[in-house]
Structure formats: C-alpha cells, structure tokens
C-alpha cells in the first residue's frame, strides 16, 4: 500500500543547459531526471523512488529540438512525442517510429512523453525502443565525462536498468535518413484501443531491391523479454526473398521463437509468444508495402 512520500521535501530545479543538468544530477545520487514524468510521478506516489531533487530537462532547448541536416535527423531526448508526430519529415521517413511515438498514452501524455524518457525508463514494454532500434537510432549521452554516442539498442540493459552512468542523461537521438525503398512499421497489442501498456510490440524495417525482394530487414520485439529482442532468424529468412507467403510464415515462427516472455497481470507466456509472431509478420508486411509504395513514387 503506497503512501505519498513527503513531497514537500522535494526540490525542483530547471537548468537551461546540459552542463548544468549534468552537474545537478552528478552531485546528488538521489536527484532524478524530470522530463515527462508520466511514469516517475506515479512511481513516486507509490513510494518509490524518493528523490531529493527533480531536475527538469524541458527548459534545455537542445533537449526539445527537432532538426535535420539533410542526411541525419537530430531529435531532442525530451521532445514531446506530440511534436514528433506532427513533424512531416519524420512521419514520411519513419512512419513506424512515428506511429510508435503516437501510441504512448493519451493526448495528455503525448504532450510529455519523449523518446529519451521512453528509453531511459527502461520498461521492457516501452513502445518506441523497438522502432528506434530497427532504425539504428543513436543516443547522444552527456555526463560528467563529456558526451558519447551509443546505439539506442545499448541503452536499456534490463527492466528499469540502463547503461547510463551517474549524472548521465540522453541529450538527443540521431537518425540517418533511410535509404531508398525503405520503410518501417510498428504494431502493438493492447486489450483496449488506447491507454494500455503493450502486451507485445513489434517493429520492422524493410528495404526492398528493384525487384521487390528484401534487401535489408530489421525486426525487434518489445514486452517479450527483459529488453528489446532482435530477431536475426526472421531477418535472415527475409533477405533476398519476396516478403510474402512462406517467408512471412518463417518470420512469424522465428519471432515467436525469439521471445523470452513472462507471465504477469498483462499477459501470459503462451499468448505473448504467439502474438509476437503474428505482429512481427504483420509489421513486416506493412513495412514492405510502404517500402514498395516508395519505390512506385520514385
């Protein structure tokens, strides 16, 4: 039974530079990043954790900006997913990632949720990490030792666990413009139509060659293991083939086999495994269809 902790004892800080934020977080182990806080505040109310300082990152311009230099997009780690969903360039180049971004909670939550929060919160069921991973997103991380860039796939290491060191924050994400005839898709299973945590999530990115065969494939699953799971067997089954028929059956089987789910209040092992296969197959189909349409347009 959670009691609200002494909220009156908590301090709020709103740095305007990355350096200030890193300094605040690095100097107090009980300081917490306060970005969207859509998970953090309910957790605090339930009695865990008990931060001393909440470090608001949303007044740091760089963390909220969305830009592109023509070949690479830079998306602030705290940029609201509402802004991401409203960004024409991202929506055109990464439709699946943008869909995943739009699935995080209600319109109210969309004003606050972000890729950085979604990834650093390290929930196995988070919606955007599978899509970030199939798109080879990179996370730029700032900390007391300066900045470093890592693959988004390397940030979460387990439920609630990340590779971020003390005082480190994700500053922004880098996403390379996808090659021609490339598209992604994301599907998730929730019992309702909205407002649920994914029971299973599946992201796929497909690149087609001129004949419509798969030239490159990336498939990643959420909520079926402690961290996002890639499905190399499914990716291998696709390469060089048309994304249809038996090949898709192989994708489904490989995806189901790649899972390592748990039984919990939101789903069972058997259900998650079966549906992971279904969603992976469907996500591949949608991504391939989008990629083919791009080919038609060009």
């Amino acid at each position: 039974m959670g009691y609200d902790l002494m909220l009156s004892a908590m301090r709020y800080a709103s740095p305007t530079t990355v350096a200030e934020a890193v300094d605040l977080l690095g100097s107090d182990p009980a300081a917490r990043v306060y970005a969207g806080a859509t998970d953090l505040i309910p957790q605090i109310r339930a009695g865990r954790p008990e931060p001393t300082v909440m470090v608001d990152l949303k007044r740091i311009d760089r963390l909220c900006a969305i830009g592109s230099n023509g070949s690479t997009y830079t998306v602030g780690a705290a940029a609201p997913t509402a802004d991401i969903c409203g960004h024409d360039g991202l929506a055109a180049d990464f439709p699946g990632l943008v869909e995943a971004s739009g699935l995080i909670g209600s319109d109210q939550i969309q004003s606050r949720s972000s890729w950085g929060g979604n990834l650093a919160n390290a929930s196995p069921a988070a919606d955007t990490p599978p899509s970030l991973i199939v798109n080879d997103a990179r996370a730029v991380i700032a900390g007391p030792g300066g900045e470093r860039t890592v693959a988004a796939a390397d940030v979460a290491t387990g439920p609630g666990q990340t590779s971020l060191g003390p005082g480190e924050i994700i500053v922004e994400f880098e996403l390379d413009q996808p090659p021609a005839r490339t598209a992604d898709a994301y599907l998730r299973l929730i019992p309702r139509t909205e407002m649920d945590i994914a029971v299973v999530g599946a992201a796929a990115r497909i690149t087609l060659d001129g004949d419509g065969n798969v030239a490159a494939a990336a498939i990643a699953l959420g909520a079926v293991a402690p961290t996002v799971v890639r499905v190399p067997d499914a990716e291998a089954a696709l390469i060089g083939n048309l994304p249809s028929g038996e090949v898709l059956g192989a994708v489904e089987a490989a995806a189901a086999a790649a899972t390592n789910p748990i039984d919990d209040k939101r789903g069972t092992v058997a259900y998650r495994r079966q549906v992971a296969g279904v969603l992976a197959r469907r996500a591949v189909s949608i991504a391939a269809e989008r990629a083919a349409q791009q080919g038609d347009q060009s």
Binding site: P42, R192, T193, E194, M195, K265, R266
Partner: peptide, 23 residues
C-alpha cells in the same frame, strides 16, 4: 487481479481497464 497473498495487482485505471472512448 490478486497475487497469491491476496494483494491486488491492478489497483489503477492503467491496469483495471474500464472502456475508453475509442473502445
């Protein structure tokens, strides 16, 4: 939903799923 000790596991509107408008 209760755990084996009788502790409720879904005491929130996130996991106790009442219909939303889009349902």
């Amino acid at each position: 939903i209760y755990d084996s000790d009788g502790v409720m596991e879904n005491p929130s509107f996130l996991d106790y799923r009442v219909p939303v408008a889009s349902d």
